[in-house]
């Protein structure tokens, strides 16, 4: 068994990490040149965060 300390993240930290990791993977898989990869990663990360936060705000009225 591998003993590992439990990871505790807030909602935002979880979303940020998820978006960052997935953006990096997509960037490397879909683009060849380093500059194109960086652009894709940043754009994808931005969209992940904007859409994620946007959906969060859109759901806010129904959470009560």
């Amino acid at each position: 068994m591998i003993e590992a300390s439990e990871v505790r993240l807030s909602h935002f930290q979880s979303m940020l990490l998820f978006a960052l990791v997935i953006s990096i993977a997509f960037g490397f898989l879909s683009r060849r040149r380093p500059l194109d990869r960086v652009k894709y990663i940043l754009w994808s990360l931005f969209l992940f965060l904007v859409i994620g936060i946007g959906i969060g705000w859109a759901m806010y009225p129904f959470s009560k």
């Binding site: 439990e6 993240l9 990791v21």
Partner: peptide, 12 residues
């Protein structure tokens, strides 16, 4: 990326 996601997922 797969390793980090698995590590975080299992750690959480």
């Amino acid at each position: 990326t797969v390793g980090v996601l698995v590590f975080l997922g299992a750690g959480m």
